[in-house]
Design a protein around this nucleic acid. Structure first.
Lengths: 251, 251
DNA sequence: CGGCCGCTTGAATACCGTCAATTATAGTGG
DNA sequence: CCACTATAATTGACGGTATTCAAGCGGCCG
């Protein structure tokens, strides 16, 4: 059940059979289900364990006092809500379920023991944390510098690459597609624009043939075209197997 | 010379005399000077060591292909440019000097040895990394949700708190002040707005009495007023001494 | 089948960007 | 010490992108 986490980490480094077994064990200790709109963790909570998403989508968000809301990340299977957050006194943001969700609750002690016993996993989780931070900075640049079309295009490019790494896209002759369980309002909250403007921008993108969006299925007819329309550079996702020199059969 | 790093980390946990000596040693191994506008590290570089800012200000930034630039963080004394970045193949952003700078270059091996030998330092550096990530997310929310005045006010509130924790603000009856070696153009690149609009917004803020900005000195007459004008909530800086339960005299 | 949620549309407006030029300020060298 | 020059701050007019407000449509679920 930790299959997506394993696939994600293996984009950084090969894992041994034992590494994988350890991850599987960890992910099956305590699994809970959540309904859409429920919160996995809430701002102000004291983080006591780590939450790993096994199935479904979630999102990180921050609320302002007056009701405005910023989504700061979309979380997909294999993503971890709050790695190492147990060092902090309380959460400074919330994580909510976008779809029905299966989440593994992992005691922080188990995380620490596992990273002690499996240095390759420790390194891979490090890599993962760095990539998440990098994505956060890219989002800042996305909202700060790009216009409406570029922002949405950039978000779609990012999601396509992340999901492809997990085997969650459907490739085809006419492009690749994936499920996007996100309302236009949420797209707006993620990109810093209003629902109305998201709607009009998506329509323009459809007319230009940049995307096909029907229901909850997003299809990208030509990834290169979409990427260049977004000034998208994938380097911030660090998918280049930096750590491949590590041999998975080392202890 | 690691005084600011020590002050920063001690906002999280008390350090023992030996901890501090280890940090001092580490920070004095190899110190270099940089002139304003020089880069400490550049996008595409392979990170081989860790850079600690001893004196002066720097900024993280990402360039888009067409010349647009987003500043994603301001770095002040005690800040680390690229903690653990050596895990990655290459930098996905650059760090440039804003003022004249003194920077300690620390081999990643030294970092690893020190965190092995001093678990309290390791925890404090963890805390520091988490806070930086948290700041990055807050910037996303800042640019995504706040209007021009709120954005600048929020940035000033953050800098005031961070600098005060280092002893780099001048308190006084009429408020507190600090050096802000940042041009209006750079304020714009950090907040996602144009120089012209930064200028007009600053003028409005001065007229409202929210700030006094003369030359490079920013004075905040009433911090509470500025904070509420920005919908500022300091929880994301985690300055609440979460780790004070750690006793600095433990080994 | 009714109601709710999400999508869509229109019109008016506001905020912020662009362009272009002028005025200050600071750092440099004679 | 002051002129000189580059950089930074400021101003005005105009245009465009995105927001606001309000209303209507459509599909899915109970």
């Amino acid at each position: 059940m930790a299959i997506y986490l394993i696939r994600k980490l293996e984009q950084f480094t090969k894992l041994s059979a034992e590494d994988k077994k350890a991850l599987e064990r960890m992910a099956s200790l305590n699994v809970r289900q959540l309904a859409p709109k429920e919160d996995i963790v809430r701002e102000g909570d004291k983080p006591r364990h780590v939450n790993l998403i096994l199935e479904g989508w979630a999102f990180r968000y921050k609320d302002l006092e007056d009701g405005r809301r910023q989504i700061t990340a979309f979380l997909v299977p294999g993503d971890i809500c709050d790695m190492r957050m147990f060092i902090l006194k309380e959460m400074d943001h919330s994580v909510g379920a976008l779809t029905r969700l299966r989440v593994a609750e992992i005691p922080s002690k188990v995380i620490l023991e596992m990273t002690d016993a499996h240095p390759r996993i420790a390194r891979a989780l490090w890599w993962n944390s760095l990539v998440e931070e990098s994505i956060a900075r890219e989002w800042t640049a996305n909202i700060g510098q790009r216009d409406a079309t570029e922002r949405l295009a950039h978000l779609f490019c990012e999601l396509a690459l992340r999901l492809r790494g997990l085997g969650l896209t459907n490739g085809a002759a006419e492009g690749q597609s994936f499920e996007l369980p996100v309302t236009q309002e949420q797209l707006g909250e993620a990109t810093g624009m209003t629902t109305v403007h998201v709607n009009r921008t998506l329509q323009a993108m459809r007319e230009q043939g940049l995307i096909v969006l029907r229901g909850r299925t997003l299809t990208i007819p030509d990834e290169e075209v979409l990427q260049s329309s977004a000034l998208f550079n994938s380097n911030y996702l660090h998918l280049d197997r930096d750590g491949r020199e590590l041999d998975a059969n080392d202890p």
